[in-house]
Every structure is written in C-alpha cells, then in structure tokens.
Simulated assay, not measured.
Amino acid sequence: MRKIRARTLLLVGALGLLVLHLCKDCIDHKNIHLNIDVKEENIQVRQPSTKNSYVYSWPKCQRNTSAANVTGFSSLPGDIKNFLYYRHCRHFPMLLDLPDKCGGVDKSAEVFLLLVIKSSPVNYDRREVLRKTWAKERLHNGVWIRRIFISGTMDTGFEKERLNKLLELEQREYNDILQWDFDERFYNLTMKQILFLEWMERNCPNARFLLNGDDDVFANTNNMVVYLQSLKDNDGGKHLFTGHLIYNVGPIRMSGSKYFIPVQVQESDSYPPYCSGGGFLLSGYTALVIYNMSQSITILPIDDVYMGMCLAKAGLSPSSHMGVKATGLHIPSSTLDVYDPCYYKEVLLVHRFLPAHLYLMWHRINDPNLKCGPSKKKL
C-alpha cells in the first residue's frame, strides 16, 4: 500500500511539472513575470510596473550593527552613525523606473545629452520649472536632449505616502523620474549617484554625454550642446569630466559643518581632485568607468568627492571649465543687476537659482531681441 501511494505521489508530481511547462505561455499572457538575478548574494525580483515594464525591487538592506564597535562611534552625530550602519548597502527597492527612457539599449546612442538631475520629493516647484526651461526634452542642433530626475523617499507614514504619490502622478504625466526607497538625505547622495549609474548601465549605456547636477542650478543646455559638439574626436566614447574643479583639499573635521567627515569615515586627510557636485558634464564612457570603479571603492558620503575617487582609481582626471560657476557669478559692482541676462547668456551653469528667477532667466537669455555688450559676455 505504501509503494502504491509513493508511486501515486511521484505521478502527481510529474504531471504537475508537465502542466507548469505547458502553461508557461498562459502565465505569460497574464503578465505575470518573475525574473531572479543573483548579485552579491542578494535576490533581485523584477515586478511589472503600471506601464508593463519592469521595476527592480531589492530587499531592504539590513543594518550592520558591528559599526557601533568603531572607536568613538558613540560620540558621532546621528547622521554619521546612520551612514556607518548602512554604508555597505548598494541596492534598494526601486519605486519608479524608466526602462525605455533612452529608447532601449540599442537606441540609447541617439541620446546626445542626458540631463541627470538630483531632486528631493518635496521639490515639485523646481521640477516643474526645469521641465519648462533648460531641462525641456527637445531636439537642439540636430541632437536629442533627454531628462531624468533621481530621487529617494522622505518622511514616514502618511507624509511619505503623499510624497510618493506626488512623484507617481508626475511620472504618469512626464515619464521622467527614477525613485528608490532609501532616505533622501545629504549623506545618501553618493548612493543616489551609484544607483543611477547602475540604472544607466542597464538601460542607457550608449548615451553620449551627461549633465549631472542639482535641481537649483541654472544650466544653459543649448550652450552645452554646442560645446560638446565642438569636442575633437570625442563623441562620448572617450573620457570627459569637466566643471568647477576643486583640488588640494581634504575632509572637514569640524562636527558642525554640513560636510563633516570624521576619521571613522575616512582616515586620509586629503581628497583627490574633483568637480563640484552642483553640476558637471561627463561623457557616457566616463560615467560607466565611474560605475565600474565604484564597485570596489568604499562609499564616502560626499558624492562629488566620491566621483573624484572613482576617477583617480581609473587613472583619469577631472578638468576645469570656465563656463561652470558652482559658487555663482561674481558681478563687479553692487550697482549692477545680478540677474542681468547678458551675464548668463554665454555660461554653461550657475549655482544657485530660485525657481522664479530661473524661469525668467531662461526666457530672457533666449529672447532674440536681447543685445549684450562684450564686457558682460566675458563674466
């Protein structure tokens, strides 16, 4: 009797496997997909999004409690403690994805300038202004400019839900947001950069050039296209990383500073050369080099410095561009209008701008009737 039962169970099991095999197509027709990739001992589940595309969802990264054993840990500020607890984390659940933003891997080379804009969920007004001004997706000088905002999450409970819903509504209308479920805070900016570069390698590896910057900068993207088109023998397949160059500096050890980096985070007293994170231009080639280098470099919370570290490991250097004004424009006299459009017509990028000033400036510099003297153009 036991042998008969065993044979019956084996027969039922075999029939079950046959049914699953035969019904594979009917499961697919119901849009039920489960693809599992193993990376760094994590399981990655791809779930269907609202647009029949995949959203990559990593399990929540667990706190490394051994970080508390670091000498002097108890005296560190809360943000630094939190950073050390989760410093090992490289993957977070993805809430909003843009798998077809570049037209697929094969067509991604048609994206000449990809605007990668760091934006907190609450900065709705900034995103709206950028969509209407320098970040507008368009064909300029015969090449395509595309736009992506990259964001984490903020707050908890109902407020977090509301902000996530806001980004979801923006996504439905504009299709321009990448969002991951990690805390949107200053010390997580490096993780935001790494997550974007991972997305780029997967979905947009052949984009020619990128502008990487904040959502409060004024960027003359028309000028950027002209500058990038003028580069000799570089269509994005060679090294380029340029902006406001910073060198011969090191970690700030004063705990009251926004940029405070204690020895528990980095022992070295020097940073490699890097470009200010407010905004810089880089080639698609260099972006992927940075991503590859990041896989073996311990995360530093200052994102622009970290990019410099990745470049240094690759044997590459950032360069200075006089058109990038990360600290704002220096106007020679207090009697002059600091928002005179003639000062901004020839630059590439200026940090920082309020949304209303940015909206007005974009339209003023693009006014065909604007006339500027040579002295203002040189600033």
Rank of each mutant, 00 (worst) to 15 (best):
Y306F: 15
P272M: 00
M309W: 03
K313V: 02
L288I: 00
I261E: 06
S333A: 13
N292M: 12
L288R: 04
P301L: 05
C275S: 09
P332C: 13
A312E: 09
T286S: 12
A312Q: 07
Y274P: 11
G256W: 07
V324A: 01
L288S: 00
A314N: 03
L281I: 07
I252R: 11
E267D: 12
K313L: 04
G328R: 02
D304K: 02
A326T: 06
E267Y: 12
Y271F: 14
Q266V: 09
S320I: 12
G277V: 10
L282M: 15
I252P: 09
V265W: 00
P332N: 13
S255H: 06
Q264C: 07
S296A: 11
V289T: 10
K258Y: 12
S320D: 15
Y291C: 02
F260M: 14
P273K: 04
P273V: 01
P301W: 01
Q295L: 10
Y291F: 14
D303F: 10
S294P: 05
S319M: 09
L311N: 05
G328P: 01
K325H: 15
T327H: 13
M293A: 13
S320M: 14
A287D: 00
S257E: 13
P273M: 05
Y259C: 12
Y271A: 05
S296W: 00
I331H: 08
L282I: 11
K258H: 13
H321C: 06
P262T: 09
V324H: 00
L311R: 04
L282Y: 06
G315M: 06
S319I: 08
C310R: 00
F260C: 13
S283H: 00
N292S: 10
I297T: 01
L282H: 03
S333G: 07
N292P: 07
V265G: 02
